[in-house]
Simulated assay, not measured.
Amino acid sequence: MKLVILDRDGTINVDSDEFIKTPDEWMPLPGALEAIARLNHAGWHVAVASNQSGLGRGLFDVASLNAIHAKMHKSLGTLGGRIDAVFYCPHSPDEGCACRKPLPGLFEQIGERFGVDLKTVPAVGDTPRDLQAGAAVGCQPHLVLTGKAEALRGKPLPPGTYPADTVVHQDLAAFADWLIARAPAPRPT
């Protein structure tokens, strides 16, 4: 199975220091949904791994989060794309859970659900914790220069912050182009 694990806020949609609390606040980044649809059309399954500490902080409830994800799924559906599963950590930073990135709990759950060895799976995000969580279970780290990483455009990555083998892309569309271009050609029948 060809699987990609994406962060949500700052990778797929516009991020906010005030948290994305309602469907009206959820706005896709330019080209991000089209990139996911292109990945799907090239045979890739997509899972999302997202810290949603706004739940643990009491800023929004599960019904609101489900409504946000329903908007994301519907928006993708209009483009012929899909996200196969959304995994999220509902805990606040001080709860000491194993699923809050940079810990690998969400990635372990995804590996179990899909029955895949994560060592062949690209993990895409806009923060060090996104990539550290994926790298902890062997995922291939890919940084997109959107969201919190937008300030890194045109600059080298800070040493010791990101996994050593991190591949950098301008945005999710550039990552999709890169990944699709490296996919093996279909075998002749």
Results as ranks from 00 to 15, higher is better:
residue 171 D to R: 03
residue 154 G to D: 07
residue 118 L to I: 03
residue 104 P to L: 08
residue 136 A to H: 02
residue 182 R to P: 00
residue 44 W to G: 12
residue 143 L to N: 04
residue 44 W to A: 14
residue 156 P to T: 10
residue 7 D to P: 01
residue 89 C to V: 08
residue 157 L to S: 04
residue 49 A to P: 03
residue 72 M to F: 15
residue 144 V to Q: 06
residue 187 R to M: 05
residue 3 L to T: 00
residue 112 E to V: 10
residue 78 T to D: 15
residue 52 Q to W: 07
residue 12 I to K: 02
residue 176 A to T: 04
residue 63 A to D: 14
residue 186 P to G: 03
residue 147 G to M: 05
residue 21 K to N: 07
residue 37 A to C: 08
residue 81 G to S: 15
residue 160 G to K: 00
residue 65 L to N: 11
residue 122 P to D: 10
residue 133 A to H: 03
residue 80 G to T: 14
residue 99 C to T: 03
residue 132 Q to V: 05
residue 86 V to A: 11
residue 35 A to H: 07
residue 125 G to L: 09
residue 109 Q to L: 13
residue 26 W to T: 06
residue 65 L to Y: 14
residue 31 G to A: 05
residue 175 F to H: 00
residue 25 E to D: 13
residue 140 Q to D: 00
residue 104 P to S: 10
residue 137 V to Y: 01
residue 3 L to M: 00
residue 74 K to V: 14
residue 43 G to S: 12
residue 172 L to I: 00
residue 74 K to R: 15
residue 164 A to R: 08
residue 151 A to H: 11
residue 13 N to W: 09
residue 121 V to H: 02
residue 52 Q to L: 09
residue 144 V to R: 06
residue 8 R to P: 01
residue 41 H to Q: 15
residue 54 G to L: 12
residue 4 V to S: 01
residue 176 A to P: 02
residue 170 Q to C: 02
residue 165 D to L: 06
residue 18 E to K: 06
residue 97 C to I: 04
residue 144 V to C: 06
residue 45 H to N: 13
residue 61 D to N: 15
residue 121 V to I: 08
residue 77 G to V: 14
residue 11 T to D: 11
residue 4 V to G: 01
residue 165 D to A: 11
residue 65 L to R: 10
residue 114 F to V: 05
residue 15 D to Q: 11
residue 135 A to Q: 00
residue 122 P to V: 09
residue 58 G to L: 12
residue 169 H to G: 01
residue 9 D to C: 04
residue 145 L to D: 03
residue 16 S to G: 02
residue 24 D to K: 12
residue 40 N to M: 09
residue 179 L to W: 05
residue 3 L to E: 00
residue 21 K to Q: 10
residue 39 L to G: 11
residue 112 E to R: 14
residue 161 T to D: 11
residue 20 I to W: 11
